[in-house]
């Protein structure tokens, strides 16, 4: 189908014009709408308007992008598993989303997919079902990148933490590696934006520090992150 003149596609992998998102084909059960009974029917996949009116990613389109492009994407990620049983299981997803967000948000220094791999190692040990209680305000931290419930709200535009390039996902979505990594990398980018404003010499490492909630680069866990990152970069597998 030819694209209409005014329809701008934001990214080469996105299916729908700005302000809309992809809703996959599905079987719709019989239901009532405005006092009319709608019979069970098949609904084609289509682009629908975003609630926010902003550029937002929804689960259906994330799966579509992942299934269509991630296996074809030439990966730049290290094959070093860091000793974890599932250490290389998510490489294509990590590399795919890092490629996507790097192209969308265009940082001066692009995010390295190995950075995200180490992030997952330190956050969840590559356990996609990992769940930790993160306090009354933050709720629970879930999945590979331990995305918290409050972070999910921020990624939807709550309190204008993220002003655009929103991610519309729910708590249960965080146990799916494709959705979790999409959200986690987007949140790491938000932390990079904060690091850029906060520090004279911002870096991706400082955004990791902010993601993990630490105030100093001398923190034990930040140092552990650096050690693992150096290891992944020094060893060829």
């Amino acid at each position: 189908m030819a694209k209409k003149k005014n329809e701008k596609i934001k990214h080469r992998w996105r299916k729908c014009p700005l302000g809309t998102h992809w809703r996959s084909a599905s079987n719709v059960d019989k239901h009532h709408r405005k006092k009319i009974t709608v019979k069970e029917h098949y609904r084609k996949g289509t682009c629908v308007k975003n609630r926010s009116g902003k550029d937002s990613l929804y689960a259906d389109e994330m799966f579509l992008i992942s299934n269509t492009y991630f296996s074809k994407n030439k990966t730049n990620i290290s094959s070093n598993s860091l000793g974890y049983r599932k250490g290389n299981q998510y490489d294509q997803i990590i590399d795919g989303w890092v490629t996507y967000w790097n192209e969308i948000l265009k940082p001066k220094v692009p995010l390295d997919p190995d950075f995200v791999k180490v992030m997952i190692a330190t956050e969840s040990s590559f356990n996609s079902r990992a769940e930790a209680f993160a306090g009354k305000r933050a709720g629970h931290a879930r999945g590979l990148m331990q995305v918290t419930d409050i972070t999910l709200k921020y990624l939807k535009g709550h309190k204008t933490e993220a002003r655009n390039q929103l991610v519309e996902l729910d708590e249960d979505d965080m146990y799916d590696p494709v959705l979790n990594i999409a959200a986690g990398v987007r949140w790491l980018y938000r932390k990079k934006q904060i690091a850029d404003a906060k520090f004279e010499e911002p870096s991706w490492l400082k955004s990791v520090m902010l993601y993990k909630g630490y105030r100093s680069m001398n923190n034990k866990n930040v140092k552990k992150f650096i050690r693992l990152y150096e290891r992944i970069k020094s060893e060829k597998h």
């Binding site: 330190t122 956050e123 930790a132 209680f133 993160a134 306090g135 009354k136 305000r137 933050a138 931290a141 331990q146 993990k212 909630g213 630490y214 923190n219 034990k220 866990n221």
Partner: peptide, 13 residues
């Protein structure tokens, strides 16, 4: 030995 939890969360946690 030094040890720490993976992440910092709020004071209540």
């Amino acid at each position: 030995y030094d040890f720490a939890a993976r992440r910092a969360f709020d004071g209540g946690w």
